[in-house]
Design a protein around this nucleic acid. Sequence first.
DNA 1: AAAATAATTTTACAGTGTAAATTTACACTG
DNA 2: CAGTGTAAATTTACACTGTAAAATTATTTT
Lengths: 229, 229
Amino acid sequence: MARPLASIRNPNLRESIKEAAWRQIGVSGASSLSLRSIARDLGISAPAIYNYFTDRDALVTALVLDAYLSFGDSQHAAKEKFTGEGDVAKRFMETGIAYREWAIANPHRYLLIFGTPVPGYVPPMEELQPAMMRSMGALAEVVAELHHRGMLNAGGIPLFDPEACFFPSGQCPTPDDLLIYSVSMLIWCRVHGLVSLEVTGKLPPFGPRGDALYRYELEAMLREFVIRD
Amino acid sequence: MARPLASIRNPNLRESIKEAAWRQIGVSGASSLSLRSIARDLGISAPAIYNYFTDRDALVTALVLDAYLSFGDSQHAAKEKFTGEGDVAKRFMETGIAYREWAIANPHRYLLIFGTPVPGYVPPMEELQPAMMRSMGALAEVVAELHHRGMLNAGGIPLFDPEACFFPSGQCPTPDDLLIYSVSMLIWCRVHGLVSLEVTGKLPPFGPRGDALYRYELEAMLREFVIRD
DNA sequence: AAAATAATTTTACAGTGTAAATTTACACTG
DNA sequence: CAGTGTAAATTTACACTGTAAAATTATTTT
C-alpha cells in the first residue's frame, strides 16, 4: 500500500510534522531531531516528509520561523502592557523581563533561534531576517520612543555599518535609525549574554537569584542610556 | 593482521587523535566531529579509539579541557602584560580584549567551551570546573585587585548563592570572595554576550566595527564598576 | 617457552539523512 | 466511463554515524 493513510486521517501533515518535531525537541533537545523518528511518531515513512520540506534544514528553518513568531509576539505584548505617556522606562523593563521569561519558558526554542543546537544547520539569514527584525522590533520601538522624547543618552556608542546591514526594503537608514538600531543591538547583546548562559545551564551559581541579577542588568542599562525626569 | 602499525609508527596515539579531531573541527566545525573519520585520517580502525577515550563524549571532554587550557593561558598572559601599580584598569582592558581576540582566533574552540556545538554532548561540570575556574581566574584576580585597592564600585550587584556554587576545596567563601566572584561573573556575562554573537556570525551589522563596540562595552564596565583616581 | 594481557582488527547492529525507483490514490480529460 | 497524468506515499538502497562483541595479534610477564 502506498498512499492511503497520511493525507486522509491527517489533513494538515505539514503542521503535524512541525508539531511532532517540537514534541521531540521538547523531550530530547534540538540536537537529536530526527526525520525518521518524526515519521515513526506520525506513522508515515521518513521520505514522505520530503513532500512538505525539501530538507531537514528546511524543516528546521520552519521551526525557527515559528519560534521567532512566538518570541516576537511575547515581546510586542510586553511592550504594549503599559501604554501611559510616562511609562517608557516601564515598557523597557517589561520588554526586557519578557525576553528572559520567554527564554526560560521555551529554552529549546530560544536555543534554536540564538544558539547552534542542530548539527550541520546554517540558518538562511535572508529568509529569517524579517522574522528576526520583527521580534527585535519591540525593543527597537522602545528605544526609538526614548530617542524621540529626548531621553536617550547614548552619544558615545559606536554605530554600525549601514552598508553591512540589510534594512527593510533596502532603504538607506537615517542617522536616527542608525542610532536606535545600534543601541538596540547593544542592549540585545547584554541581555543575550545573561539569558543564553542561564538557558544553557552555565550560570549555576546564581540559581534562583538569576532574577535579581537580570533585573540589575536591566536597571544598569536604564541608568546608562536613559535620562529620566 | 591486528596490532602491527598504529602504536609503533605513532607512539602517542592519544595526542594524535586529539590533533586529528582539532583538524576536523577546524575544517567543518565541531558538529560534524566523527570518530570514524578521525580513524580514517590516522589510518586506524574506529573502535581503536576506544582504547584512548571511553566515549565520543570523553574525547570531546578532552578537547574542551585543552581549549580551556589555551584560553586560560591567553587570559593570564594578558593579565600579566602590565605589571605596574597603577595599571589595574589597563590589566582589565587587556584581559577583556584578549578574551575576544582568543575567541575570534579560535572560534571553534570558543564554541566548544561556551556553546553547545556537539549533538548529544553534555559537559561533565565537576570534571571541567577546575579548568574553567582557572581560565576565569585571570579576570577574578583583576577584580580582586580592584577590590583590595578600594576601587571596586559594585555595592548594588546581587551576590550569588554560596551554596549553589562549588568552591575550590569545598571551602565556604568569604563575603569578599562572594563579591569578587559575582562581579566577575557579571562581567563575563556581558563579554560573552557580545563575543558569542560575533563568533557565531549573528552580529553582522557591526562588521569590522565589532572592535569599537567591544571596546565601548569594556569601558562602560570600567565606568560602572571602577572608581578611578 | 607458555601464559596472560593489552592493543587492534573485523564484524555487526541500530541509528541517521536522503536519492531513486516504484506504487497507489485522486483529479481530469476524451 | 475508461484512460491518463500527477502528486503523495511507499519501499529500497547508499553512505554515513557511534559503539558493542568477538576474534586476532603483539607485547609483557611468569
